[in-house]
Design a protein around this nucleic acid. Sequence first.
DNA 1: GAAAATAGATATGAGACATAACAATGATTG
DNA 2: CAATCATTGTTATGTCTCATATCTATTTTC
Lengths: 174, 174
Amino acid sequence: MPFSKNARPCSGDAMKKTHSPAPQHVEVASVSDATMRRFVGYRMKRAFNVVQEDLARVLKPFELRMLTYTALVLIVDNPGMRQSQLADAMDIERPNLVVLIDELERRELIVRDRVPTDRRAYALKATLAGLRLYDRAVAAVAAHEARLLDGIDQDSIATVLAALKTIENARQGD
Amino acid sequence: MPFSKNARPCSGDAMKKTHSPAPQHVEVASVSDATMRRFVGYRMKRAFNVVQEDLARVLKPFELRMLTYTALVLIVDNPGMRQSQLADAMDIERPNLVVLIDELERRELIVRDRVPTDRRAYALKATLAGLRLYDRAVAAVAAHEARLLDGIDQDSIATVLAALKTIENARQGD
DNA sequence: GAAAATAGATATGAGACATAACAATGATTG
DNA sequence: CAATCATTGTTATGTCTCATATCTATTTTC
């Protein structure tokens, strides 16, 4: 799993790096990502890739991907929700949600009930099978998370969460 | 920009949540992502989406994407590097790197020099234009990072970096 | 020197996104 | 009430990031 997928930035300050006069023919022994490493975003990307990778592995036995997992959780937690609400919550476009819902419905994990007061909309609800899968998947994901965070004390986690929230709220012009 | 793209997991512990007996026809007023919110990975995803979004915006004026930016930085920092080394460093497959390098070469930001000792390989080097773009882009990204992290004290950042490193190293069976 | 490994490239496909356009329905408003 | 406008879900389509399989040229190894 790539880490530069979205990867991240580099170093300090345009860095007065004296681009050393290339000495003819240099064989690069080990690649330096020192410039990139200086950026928090780059570290975030690398760490997040590990999380993603591990999560995908954890969800695989349930035949869930991150998107279908997220959709299932949100539907279980918000029974009766409409597709457009779910798309909003997941921050994806409605067209893309349709195929996710199709998949969950085909597997009979959720149903599309008609909303009586609005015949355009569907009320999404989990089936019993959906609830059962939810329970198992959420437990597995909790274990995955505990495993990844093992070795990080609770204070640090609190600090990380606060920092993440600050970053999330730093979103501008959105 | 979606956050559930890779999104993330939920709550506590399979949660003894008494799936409340669906009261006929509930209109979901506001969507709860409480279960998801309990997971650090989910928060990471949301925060990282903001970073990605902002970074993409910052790189746009330079006509760089995250991948081309990362490649350029690594080539500038590691002159003479081979494509396979770069692919390794970026954690992407060689075929995918080819098109990135093609793009940077077409824009005359880098060159593919032949390695005299191995006629299969290319030694990647930045051109003067590449170096100049590197300087400007790195400066812009540094500013973007400072903006996003504004309000987070240095101690917290250190804690976050340590935590991210722990997570990155938690990668198993890899 | 023949077989195996490696560097780069090509072709192709999957997954996660976005946009445009449409039908059905609902809401507004003249 | 009728005409317009907005919304819900959908289809079609395209982009970007990733992966795999396969190919050619070249080492490297035996």
